[in-house]
Design a protein around this nucleic acid. Structure first.
Length: 234
DNA sequence: GACCAGGTATTGC
DNA sequence: GCAATACATGGT
């Protein structure tokens, strides 16, 4: 489910999917990741290893509102529950897509639903955050084109004006929703990974495609928990 | 039943 | 500045 479309991928239809104009764009197929990997690999040997570990990773071109809202829901929440929540909101307020599937709700729909209903749907303390963001998106105060254009700090500043949107959620919205490859979401996993694997380094050193580096590092770290044995709480 | 989850806002040193 | 804490909810 993405951008108002439903997709079921199998081994057999992968070729067709990637040949489709929309999904090809969604999976960022036209972007030259190989060049980026080469440049990143020259910067740091550990980063080179992380990039080599899963070179097929891509930054999706998600819908900006869908990305922002999903990451507002993600705070202090686990991935399974985030998916379930998004699914429940889609069924309640999203457009039917056939086959029992529903699109992610438009901002207008969630703004209209209101805080009380969103709490009933299981959003918890995030309900008012979703409403505020939905209102801003619906009435145009959130200007996606502007957010694509502005320097990273200013774009992040616009997003963090919203209640319940801090630097991490803002960077996720910028990276996944607006394809700002310079954004570098720093969650608890990335903090651990940076401290252990890149001591003394800052994300800015990874350059204008730091966000892609973030994905390699994140995935590599989560699949090598032994590297963080002393720090990981659980 | 505690404890935790891909954070944020507020409060108190 | 930086550590501590509340914030809803559902799953181990």
């Amino acid at each position: 489910m993405a951008c108002g479309k439903y997709l079921h991928i199998t081994r057999d239809n992968l070729g067709d999917v990637l040949g489709d104009e929309f999904w090809s764009k969604y999976f960022d197929m036209e972007f030259d990741y190989e060049s980026v990997r080469e440049r990143l690999s020259e910067k740091d040997p550990v980063l080179a290893e992380a990039a080599r570990y899963a070179p097929e990773i891509r930054i999706l071109n998600q819908d900006p509102w869908e990305a922002l809202c999903s990451f507002i829901l993600s705070q202090c929440n686990n991935i399974g529950r985030i998916k379930g929540l998004a699914d429940r909101l889609s069924r309640a307020w999203g457009a039917p897509l056939g086959g029992g599937h529903c699109a992610f709700p438009e901002p207008e729909a969630l703004a209209r639903a209101g805080e009380t209903e969103l709490r009933k749907a299981g959003c918890g303390f995030r309900a008012p955050y979703v409403v505020a963001a939905a209102q801003s998106a619906a009435d145009g105060r959130l200007d996606w084109d502007e957010l694509r254009r502005l320097p990273l700090d200013e774009a992040r500043g616009k997003l963090t004006e919203l209640p319940g949107v801090g630097p991490k959620v803002a960077d996720c919205a910028l990276l996944y929703g607006l394809h700002r490859l310079d954004a570098f979401p720093m969650d608890v996993w990335m903090k651990r990974a940076m401290k252990t694997l890149f001591p003394g380094k800052s994300p800015a050193e990874f350059g204008r495609c730091a966000g892609i580096a973030q994905q390699y590092i994140f995935h590599y770290s989560r699949n090598h928990p032994e590297l963080f044995r002393e720090q990981a709480a659980g």
